[in-house]
Amino acid sequence: MSDAPKRPSLWARIRNNVFFRVALRPSTRYSLAFLTLGGFIAGVAFWGAFNTALEVANTEQFCITCHEMKDNVYQELQGTIHWTNRSGVRATCPDCHVPHQWTLKIARKMAASREVWGHLFGIIGTREKFLDTRPELAAHEWARMSANHSQECRNCHSPQSMNFAKQSERAANIHKEQLLTGEKSCIDCHKGIAHRLPVNKADEVPAFDD
């Protein structure tokens, strides 16, 4: 046993591996100009591919590849002002749900790994399960939008650009009193503008069902 040849250490083995031996020494055949050009082109290609993938993952088409989104919230959005309006501006899922700031966007994309998990295990795989989970899901978005003062709404709507003469009196008054003062932001008052509000099971009145 004791006179068996000593195996080289892990580091020595890595260093002697053909790949690393070639990778960690100066090139003998290729010029610096060629190598940097190669790295530059690979970098440009990577950056382009990365941003293209990010953009694809930021389209409504991508969001509704999951039946959970397509069969529930997407259907409901179609009845709202953000689907058709006299101005012809369409708010898509990422307009309201994905932050623009790079760090926050990447953080949101990573958070979506949990949604992939949820999809694989069918956590909201049926209409019933979706409705049961909806209070919790809605609460997440309300908390997020409240905290950032409805940044995603304000990407399109600007309180400063509101023409109060053109709003209903009720709207103009409350906007001047609570929106312009910064006391509240859009989501604090305008919940359920894009999808149905969650229904608390305890509040349901069977007699009102049709």
Partner: peptide, 29 residues
């Protein structure tokens, strides 16, 4: 040398870049 160059520029560095961005986003999450 060419094979090592291509492996590094096409697989290893892009993979590490994705791992880095992923970890960054994950940390913020």
């Amino acid at each position: 040398e060419l094979m090592v160059f291509l492996t590094l520029s096409v697989f290893i560095w892009p993979f590490l870049a994705m791992a880095f961005v992923g970890t960054y986003g994950f940390a913020f999450w």
